[in-house]
Design a protein around this nucleic acid. Structure first.
Length: 275
DNA sequence: AAGAGGTGCAACCGCGCGAGT
DNA sequence: TACTCGCGCGGTTGCACCTCT
């Protein structure tokens, strides 16, 4: 099916934003709030595509943005989150207050990739470069080499205060430990203030078998759930469940043997289940 | 000093998704 | 069911700036 253009391109500016355009956008959002981006440019007096306005606001003009260099702690957090989530920049950004997905994505491509390579790690797989090819082959043929239960606690917005503990024991076996393994409980009143909760736990089998278990619990705040039409992480969960309660989703990637699911969950199929 | 090549980052593009009709 | 609409995401591009020779 076709898709109509998001704006009338013949009458829209492109390229770098001027200070005047920035000011108009900021003034408009200050007085009207973030609303329908498509219809924003005209009343704001901007000859810009709505998408362009949204991008400019989110990535550059938002008042809560943290400018400046990434700290070493942020570096490490990004690396660890990327090892767990992959290129889910928006999810990673949600874990770094004041940072945008675009900023993190750029930072990853320009700095962290090189950093990992210099450590002898593949930036995509986070495995040693020398074994990346062999590991990929093994994964493709469903033979496992490691077992993980991944637990990410997304409730805190402060990096320093995060309960998430991802301790790289070494760079080759990808073993992590977590201070609070089970975070799959349903949301509480307090948790409503938090945008995203995810919990994970990591364990490792001595058999050398590859299995990755992820346990994510998403507890969207009420207001965010109303404003946000879909969860930050796309999960096979009915929208009504998201609205009514926090959802704990456990799923497994890799070998189906030696499963380690959250004890509160009911298996729905071989890969994931809810609780 | 100047040109070439590398780097960093803002902005754009195309697509998927959910909601609405 | 088929289609449109709007939002948001990840990948890519373009250009200003920097470094090297």
């Amino acid at each position: 099916m076709g898709r109509s253009p998001c704006c009338e391109k013949a009458h829209t500016n492109k390229g770098a934003w001027t200070k005047e355009e920035d000011q108009r956008l900021v003034n408009y959002i200050r007085s009207h709030g973030e609303g329908c981006w498509r219809s924003l440019p005209k009343p704001a007096g901007l000859q810009r595509c709505g998408k362009s306005c949204r991008l400019r606001w989110i990535n550059y003009l938002r008042p809560d943005l943290k400018r400046g260099n990434f700290t070493e702690e942020e570096d490490e957090l990004i690396i660890k989150l990327h090892s767990l989530l992959g290129n889910k920049w928006s999810v990673i950004a949600g874990r770094l207050p004041g940072r945008t997905d675009n900023e993190i994505k750029n930072y990853w491509n320009t700095h962290i990739k090189r950093k990992l390579i210099s450590r002898g790690l593949d930036p995509q797989t986070h495995r040693p470069l020398s074994t990346t090819t062999a590991t990929s082959t093994a994964t493709a043929t469903s033979t496992s080499t490691a077992t993980k239960n991944i637990c990410l606690d997304m409730r805190n917005t402060s990096v320093a205060a995060t309960p998430l503990s991802l301790n790289d024991q070494n760079s080759t076996n990808y073993s992590y430990s977590f201070e609070e393994e089970t975070k799959c409980s349903s949301s509480t009143t307090e948790e409503r203030h938090e945008p995203l909760e995810a919990s994970a736990a990591v364990t490792e089998k001595s058999s050398g078998e590859v299995m990755i278990n992820l346990e994510l619990s998403i507890g969207l705040p009420f207001q965010a759930m109303v404003a946000q039409r879909r969860p930050t992480v796309a999960l096979p969960v009915a929208a009504t469940e998201l609205v009514e309660k926090a959802v704990c989703l456990c799923w497994q990637i890799g070998s189906q043997s030696g499963q380690q699911f959250c004890g509160k969950c009911q298996t729905t199929n071989g890969f994931y289940k809810y609780c």
